[in-house]
Design a protein around this nucleic acid. Structure first.
Lengths: 139, 139
DNA sequence: TTAAACTGTATCAAAAGAAGTTACAAAGAG
DNA sequence: CTCTTTGTAACTTCTTTTGATACAGTTTAA
C-alpha cells in the first residue's frame, strides 16, 4: 500500500460532505462509506481544513462540513492541500559527486518536477467538486 | 525509498550513455556514477531497451549504448518506458458498495488519471535528451 | 456538573512497494 | 575453454502509507 491514495479518498470524502449539505458529518460515518478507519479520515480532513476546504467542529454533535460551495472547490486546491508526493522522486542516494553529470542533475530534475506539477495543477483546476458530483450522478 | 526514482535515474543513465557515444558502457560503470547497484541499472536498461531507447549487448565486451541520437529521444518516451506509477493511487480498499458515491468513484478517478498522465506526457515530450545535456552542461 | 459524543493527535503495528544484494544461467570475445 | 558481461530470479532491507489503539480536550445536553 505504498502508493498514495489520499487524493482519491479526499474526492470521495468531499462528495459525501457535499451530499450532507450543511449537516456536520462524522468521521465514523465517512470511514464506513470509504471503508477505512476513522482516524485515516480525520487525518485527511485535518489537511483539508488547513486549506479552508472543510470546517470541522469538535465535541458532541461535532463533525465536518464543506467550507464553501462545491462549485467553488477546485480539484487543484484539493491536490495542493494534501501531502501527496511528486510525480517522480529524485535519486534515492546522492549520485557520486565525482561524476560531472550527477552534479547538475538534481537541479535540472527539480525544475522539471516543478513544471510537471504545474501542468497537473492546471489540469485539475479545470474541474470543481460540482463537476465531479455531476459526472458521478450521471453515470 | 518507496518513491519511484526510476525516471530520475533513467535520465542520468541516458546522459552517461550519450557521453559515451557509440561505445558500449557497462552497467558496473554506470552504477558507480549513479551510486547504486549494477543490477538496479540493468533492470532499468532492460525497460529502456524494450522501448528501443538503448541497445544492450550481452557477453564479453558487452554493454549498452543509445539506440538513437539524443535529439531523437523525448523524455516522454523515457517516462512511458518505465513502470512508474500514477500520480495518485485509487482507493487502497474498495469503497463500501452500499455507498452510492463509491460505486461510480473509481470510474471517474480512473478517467482523471488518464487525463493527467496525458498532460505529463505532453509536457515531457517538449524535451529531448539533447536538451537535458545542454542544460546540464551550461549549468 | 457530569456523562456522553466527537475531533485531534500521538504512537505503534501491519502491509506494500522500491531498492539493494547475491547468485547464477546464457551469450559473446579472444 | 575461459573470462567478461548482460539478464533475471530470489531474497533482504528500507521506507512509506495505511490501519489500529489510546487518550486528551471540546462541546452538548441532561
Amino acid at each position: 500500500m505504498a502508493a498514495n491514495s489520499q487524493f482519491a479518498v479526499a474526492i470521495h470524502v468531499l462528495t459525501i460532505l457535499a451530499k450532507g449539505g450543511d449537516e456536520r458529518v462524522k468521521s465514523d460515518y465517512i470511514a464506513g462509506s470509504v471503508n477505512t478507519n476513522p482516524v485515516v479520515i480525520r487525518r485527511l480532513l485535518s489537511n483539508l481544513q488547513e486549506a479552508n476546504i472543510v470546517v470541522s467542529q469538535v465535541g458532541a454533535s461535532g463533525g465536518t462540513s464543506l467550507a464553501k460551495q462545491p462549485k467553488d472547490i477546485r480539484l487543484s486546491e484539493v491536490y495542493k492541500a494534501l501531502p501527496c508526493g511528486e510525480v517522480f522522486a529524485l535519486h534515492a542516494k546522492e549520485p557520486n559527486q565525482d561524476c560531472p553529470i550527477g552534479k547538475n542533475m538534481a537541479a535540472f530534475l527539480c525544475g522539471l518536477q516543478k513544471e510537471i506539477d504545474k501542468s497537473i495543477e492546471e489540469k485539475l483546476s479545470q474541474y470543481t467538486l460540482r463537476d465531479v458530483i455531476e459526472k458521478i450522478e450521471s453515470a
